[in-house]
Design a protein around this nucleic acid. Structure first.
Length: 819
DNA sequence: TAGTATTGGCTTTTT
DNA sequence: GCCAATACTA
């Protein structure tokens, strides 16, 4: 063991640990205080794992077992990292600053930036997100004419990504592949070429960030030792979601320092680098770092992108002598919600049995609802949200989940009409917008001129009269003279184009050069970070990009200008938060921070998101929508090994987010793909004991005589929905159908559903309404206006309908008329 | 070469 | 139903 530091800098004095351990149950206590080489914390949903993790870190610091700089805590999202940092800071104060608390990806970027020169990259490398690499792969597929062999850019991309997650490269794949198959040969060529292009562009793709760090550690043991010496305590959150590359990274970091290991000349591709590390501390050799992992195999929902559940299930084998702590007490949800969750997940075979329990009491029943269409379902959600809100629950404590992003549309339509404030998390990403990608490409062209992709992207943006022909000619010129595409722009006269094109190229070159002078001064001194905003503004205005948008009469371009303004504001924010940040730091942040990370709850909006995004979050009231076959479980999952089980875990994640109220809803028909299709209730619904769900309108309620059964009958039924017990036939008003068939809708005729809601929107112009007016709504019938709030386009009518109850309506778009 | 019309193809989840 | 890539026209 390392000698414990004598003084912990910062505010944390030699206080006791009492406050850290207060209120912990015995298992949590063990998880915080156990000391040893390896610890696995199996943390069920809502079992207080973040609290345990942060207290464990704080405890290490307080007891002076570790310096902040010796701690590496890894999470999957930046949001989780930020939260953890904040909570640790709350426990130990400013000391928290010295720790690495970050995602796998940003930790690796940090290491790679520092070490890039060891293996042929520069510090300013760019990071390709999946869109960037798709663009590159697309070009390569075309060049190799790989489409003739049935290789699409998408399939190539996903195969390469999978392989990289397994730490294989083109060469190692080729060894095992059936190379007599021409398609395989082409794929291997593509893979190798892709990797060559990345290297040439001084770029890493997302998977490389992890994979290349592992490669770096293996090829340069003395580099790895630096980090092994530094990090003595490594903690990994959401361990069930790690893929093989991430697993290998952790393994490399927790190895004992290899002290006298010599660099392996073969592993480094012939680039021998002898840069002796400062001698190890006198008390070396040290053992490997201590490793703490936290996870829950029931919440593993990322197998599709390479997460390997075995990393957690075989942890004890990988790290012999590991201690295992099981956290089963749930502090989040009521027992009814947990019973439903346990019942669902219990259907997964091959899992260690684990039962969450709560001492919060049963709580409210789970509420079920079946709509005729997705709009009908959305209206139910909106109504329920409003009624909870009236009862005092803030919007920010409610969330609506769905399986696929496209399902958000119907919800949004209805929410807008009903004046429910909402926010879609992680939908179309800001950084995915074309204009933002263009602006980024301009910045990358400055920061990393070797990156041809970016330069090509901006070549004709705005339109400069440069087309395919010209681009190819420049590329050929660059190749012939063995210079980069960017450098080729500096020689417009030698390219043999017409004067107009020459001038355009010269102008672009001049703008880039000018921006480079601002953002990356040749003097080598650190430029103030405000230069990023300055440089960006300069690039956008002098390149003519903004002018072109302003001159356009496409209304969308107006929004694009606004987005760019916002983007410039982002750079200013960055400067404020990172006084020493450079353009490269800025680009790194942008590449790694997705919108799923801006989950800041602006209190006062309902959150809409996919069930994947929902992981790790919790809300008082949760609506899980679209609980239908082919959606959850998704149809695509049926063919994949382990697919249905992963879908069940996803559903489990969804329902365990709820603290007090859980709503499960579905639609009988769903417009998908432009067509209306009949939907079937999800098999997962049957796995929930019938007594736990109070169906406001169940799939079985619609009978062949039209209309639905009364609430009273519905609530009192004996056998329960979906059970094969006696009495289940009664509910249908027709002959009982056994087993799963009983979930089948008996009729999808529209007239059998009360309260149908359509997607119709109309423009009411300046329709004036005041309290006391009577109105007619196409879906809800007649009603009386109680009050009108808001102004202009956002005026909201609070209406009491004769038959449909209380609703809020956005006057401008609601399908209503005054009577 | 740019801008428009048309077709086709597709939709799981995302660090 | 939507977006993107392609084909076609100015």
């Amino acid at each position: 063991m390392t000698e414990a530091p004598l003084i912990v800098p910062g505010t944390a004095g030699p206080q006791g640990q009492d406050d850290l351990l207060a209120g912990l149950n015995p298992q949590q206590l063990e998880a915080v205080t156990y000391r040893g080489p390896a610890l696995l914390i199996v943390a069920g949903a809502g079992s207080g794992k973040t609290s345990v993790l942060t207290r464990r870190i704080a405890s290490l610091l307080r007891s002076r077992e570790a310096w902040p700089s010796q701690i590496l805590a890894i999470t999957f999202t930046n949001k989780a990292a930020g939260e953890m940092r904040e909570r640790v800071a709350g426990l130990v104060g400013d000391v928290a600053r010295g720790m690495w608390i970050s995602t796998f990806h940003s930790a690796c970027v940090r290491i790679l930036r520092r070490e890039a020169e060891q293996f042929g990259f520069t510090k300013t490398f760019t990071i390709y997100d999946s869109g960037d690499s798709r663009a590159l792969i697309k070009r390569l597929v075309k060049e190799h004419e790989a489409d003739a062999y049935g290789l699409t850019p998408a399939s190539v991309q996903s195969r390469i990504s999978k392989l990289k997650n397994e730490l294989s490269d083109a060469e190692s794949y080729a060894r095992d592949a059936n190379m007599s198959d021409p398609a395989e040969r082409i794929f291997v060529e593509l893979f190798a070429d892709y990797q060559r292009q990345l290297r040439k562009a001084n770029a890493f793709d997302f998977d490389d960030l992890i994979g290349q760090t592992v490669y770096l550690f293996r090829a340069f043991p003395q580099v790895a030792d630096t980090y092994r010496r530094r990090f003595r305590h490594i903690l990994v959150d959401e361990y069930q979601d790690t893929n093989h590359a991430q697993y290998a990274l952790i393994h490399e970091l927790t190895r004992p320092v290899s002290a006298s290991a010599a660099p392996d000349p073969y592993a480094s591709n012939g680039m021998m680098i002898f840069e002796p590390e400062p001698a190890a501390a006198p008390d070396a050799p040290e053992g490997g770092a201590s490793l703490t992992v936290v996870g829950d195999s029931d919440q593993s929902i990322y197998a599709f992108r390479g997460a390997d559940i075995r990393n957690i299930s075989e942890f004890e084998r990988d790290f012999p002598g590991a201690q295992v702590v099981l956290l089963e007490q749930n502090y989040r949800s009521t027992q009814n919600i947990l019973s439903a969750a346990n019942a669902v997940i219990g259907n997964n075979f091959d899992r260690k049995d684990k039962k969450l329990w709560s001492d919060k009491g049963d709580g409210d029943a789970i509420i079920g609802f079946t709509g005729y269409s997705q709009h009908d379902e959305a209206q139910f959600v909106a109504d329920e949200v409003e009624s909870l809100h009236r009862a005092g629950m803030p919007y920010s404590e409610m969330a609506v989940f769905y399986r696929t992003n496209s399902q958000s549309r119907a919800l949004e339509e209805i929410f807008i009409r009903s004046a429910v404030p909402y926010k879609v998390m992680g939908g179309t990403k800001f950084y995915d917008r074309a204009e933002i990608k263009d602006a980024l490409a301009y910045l990358v062209a400055v920061a990393n001129p070797a990156d041809d992709m970016s330069v090509r992207r901006i070549l004709n943006k705005p339109r400069r009269g440069i087309g395919d022909v010209t681009e190819t000619a420049i590329a050929r010129f660059a190749e012939e003279h063995d210079i980069s595409f960017r450098d080729a722009l500096a020689h417009p006269t030698q390219l043999g184009f017409g004067p107009k094109i020459q001038a355009a190229i010269a102008q672009l070159d001049a703008v880039l050069t000018e921006a480079t002078a601002i953002m990356l001064p040749a003097s080598g001194e650190l430029p103030p970070p405000t230069t990023v905003a300055e440089g960006l503004s300069l690039l956008l205005s002098k390149s003519g990009y903004l002018d072109a948008l302003r001159a356009s009469r496409d209304p969308q371009d107006e929004a694009r200008v606004e987005n760019l303004d916002e983007f410039v504001a982002v750079t200013r924010d960055f400067a404020r938060n990172n006084p020493e940040g450079t353009i490269v730091d800025f680009l790194t942040e942008v590449a790694l921070v997705s919108d799923a990370d801006d989950l800041e709850d602006e209190s006062g909006t309902v959150s809409l998101m996919t069930m994947h995004t929902a992981k790790g979050l919790e809300y008082d009231a949760v609506f899980v929508t679209g609980v239908e076959e082919d959606l959850i479980p998704h149809r695509i999952s049926a063919g994949e090994p382990g697919g249905p089980q992963e879908e069940r875990r996803l559903f489990y994640v969804g329902i365990t987010r709820a603290r007090k109220r859980l709503h499960l809803s579905l639609a009988m028909t769903r417009a998908q793909f432009g067509e209306v299709t009949v939907a079937m209730p999800s098999r997962f619904l049957q796995e929930i004991p019938a007594g736990l769900i109070d169906w406001r309108q169940s799939p079985g309620d619609v009978n062949s005589r039209g209309g639905m059964q009364s609430r009273a009958l519905n609530a009192r039924r004996s056998g329960g929905f979906g059970s094969s017990g006696s009495g289940s036939g009664d509910r249908f008003g027709v002959k009982a159908l056994p087993g799963r068939d009983s979930l089948k809708p008996l009729s999808t005729a529209m007239d059998r559903f009360p309260n149908r809601v359509t997607a119709k929107v109309r423009d009411n112009g300046d329709l004036e309404l005041t309290a006391g007016d009577r109105i007619r709504h196409t879906d809800f019938g007649e009603g009386r206006v109680d009050a009108v709030t808001g102004e202009g386009a956002k005026r909201i009518a609070h209406v009491r309908f004769d038959t449909s109850g209380q609703k809020k309506l956005l006057i401008k778009v609601a399908p209503i008329e005054k009577i």
